[in-house]
């Protein structure tokens, strides 16, 4: 099998397994997600800690799995491991995460479960996914242009 084919088959299969995991864990149910975030329900026993176990299970596997690159020169079906080029804790990370949390709390949806729910409740989740993608892309284009302008300005500045 050509590497390009394996690369794309892997992407699709990984997405399917990810989606099965979300459904088994019921993270596709926004009410269950909000039941985790509802810490005020702890005293009367209504709190649902399940989401912490989902993250815990994923992190435990990832602690090993996401370190396997140390044993490999390159990925099985790609040229190189693509790592985040961002480092350090900046205002963008804090502001973005804060805004995301508000949207997550309001709806009970983060990006993965919202896209996965297109298979279960497409009519109701569709509008959320469209708004999320449009906003994400618009923000990405804005950031891309801003960074480009800053680069240009830095080069134009007298040394």
């Amino acid at each position: 099998m050509k590497n390009g084919v394996l690369f794309h088959v892997t992407a699709a299969v990984s997405g399917v397994i990810f989606g099965i995991g979300l459904a088994i864990a019921r993270m596709t149910d926004p009410q269950k997600v909000r039941d985790f975030l509802d810490l005020a329900a702890i005293p009367d026993g209504g709190w649902d800690p399940s989401l912490a176990f989902v993250m815990g299970g994923g992190v435990l596997v990832g602690l090993v799995g996401l370190r396997l690159d140390r044993l490999l020169r390159k990925p099985v079906a790609a040229v190189s491991f693509v790592r985040s080029d961002r480092s350090g804790i900046d205002g963008r990370l804090l502001l973005g995460s804060a805004i995301f949390g508000v949207g997550w709390g309001l709806s009970g949806f983060c990006p993965g479960p919202a896209v996965a729910d297109l298979g279960l409740i497409p009519q109701s989740v569709f509008i959320f996914v469209v708004a999320m993608f449009a906003a994400s892309w618009a923000t990405g284009i804005y950031l891309h242009r801003r960074d480009h302008d800053e680069e240009t300005a830095a080069h134009a500045a007298p040394g």
Binding site: L6, F7, T10, A11, V13, S14, G15, I17, F18, I20, G21, L22, A23, I24, A25, R26, M27, D48, P49, S50, L51, A52, F53, V54, M55, G56, G57, G58, V59, L60, V61, G62, V64, G65, L66, L68, D69, L72, K74, P75, V76, A77, A78, V79, S80, F81, V82
Partner: peptide, 24 residues
Amino acid sequence: TPLTATIGGILIGLAATMLWVFNG
């Protein structure tokens, strides 16, 4: 639902591992 939450989480971790090891 700790059992299905943990199993679902493990599947998510396996999917992430697969995408990393094969596709980087």
